[in-house]
Design a protein around this nucleic acid. Structure first.
Lengths: 192, 192
DNA sequence: TAAGTTTCAAACCGTTCGGTTAGTAATACT
DNA sequence: AGTATTACTAACCGAACGGTTTGAAACTTA
């Protein structure tokens, strides 16, 4: 019983995600958003709330369309070392895609300075813990199958760190170095 | 033949470095600087130039007092795997210090969004290349001494990446995880 | 077609940003 | 003591920030 929206909110949210992904939270101004999304200032606010709320929605969107699909090999299929190897193989492929050239939105938000609001980090801590739990499960399975001589905790922390590093290498050094490092890491894990 | 400065420029530069280190370039406002350094707005400008110039001086200061000392084990003393091991051992100790809790100023500047000016990254590329060259020299020496079965380039890229990761882990997960990961990485390298 | 509802564009809000411009206070040299 | 030089304080600048208000335009329903 009223005027319909002249844009698709899902699509605009996606565009907002891409912009935040490129420039970060503080680095993305409202003006930049309304230019990129090509919607009015007021429309942005009435549809998504203020910048803080918008960013929470962006993080949620990122989680569903980017992050969770990456975890799939850790959730289903073979477990143990194979699961992690499959994860890394898939990771290397996906993260070579051009839109991943700016690293990981979750990671860069977590690493942002003290000015960036704590609520974001609180939300994202869940995501990190999730990945950590999945890796632990599979490393423990590997241990139980005698595929692992090193302690599970040490492998876990190092693996988590290396995944962060790979994503960063993608950003700073490009996809060639990324895929080489992924391959190298996969070989390394076999020696654990 | 005139009124002398009421502050020590070196000390103020150091304070500025610590503030930028914590909050990044964009995250540090001029107001924040004059509050932290306890000098007047005009004094800041007349002493250090604008924000851009100040940051270049801060990066230079960081390089001399923080970064270069870390490279020492790669420059002097035994070469080959031992040099890298010594470097990592020293790295783990130094980076456990409280002021390193915010990661590496060089790294976070390099990883900053597109809004941060390119000149900073140009300056810092030299620093990264420097570290890379030192690592390559020592890895090549290790290869020549038959201490290395993996290809030098692969080891080099992975090592560089891991150093970045360690610094990040220091920031996000604290010094305990850092030192555990350093230890783990040192063990890993022995198997290369 | 008229009432009611909601989106739209654009002007506007106070605040903070990086940077500058006076005018005054303090020192050194003659 | 007088003068030149410099650092100092503090007010000020336009631009951009995140966010809000207003009134007209566009649509649905009755």
């Amino acid at each position: 019983m009223a005027r319909p929206l002249s844009f698709d909110p899902k699509q605009k949210l996606h565009q907002a995600m891409l912009l935040f992904w490129r420039n970060g939270y503080e680095g993305t101004s409202i003006n930049a958003l309304i230019n990129e999304l090509e919607i009015n200032r007021f429309s942005l606010y009435s549809q998504f709330g203020d910048k803080h709320q918008l960013y929470l929605k962006v993080l949620e969107h990122y989680n569903t369309v980017v992050y969770q699909p990456l975890l799939e090999p850790l959730r289903n299929g073979p477990i143990g070392k194979t699961a992690i190897d499959n994860y890394l193989e898939n990771f290397g492929k996906k993260v070579s895609a051009p839109h991943a050239a700016h690293g990981c939105l979750i990671q860069s938000t977590m690493m942002a300075g003290e000015n960036v609001e704590v609520e974001f980090k609180e939300v994202l801590t869940k995501r990190v813990k999730e990945l950590r739990a999945l890796l632990r499960t599979n490393l423990q399975a590997a241990k139980d199958q005698n595929q692992l001589s090193m302690p599970v905790k040490e492998c876990l922390d190092f693996t988590l760190m290396t995944i962060n590093a790979l994503i960063m290498a993608r950003k700073s050094q490009g996809k060639e170095v990324l895929s080489q490092n992924v391959k190298f890491f996969r070989k390394t894990i076999q020696n654990w």
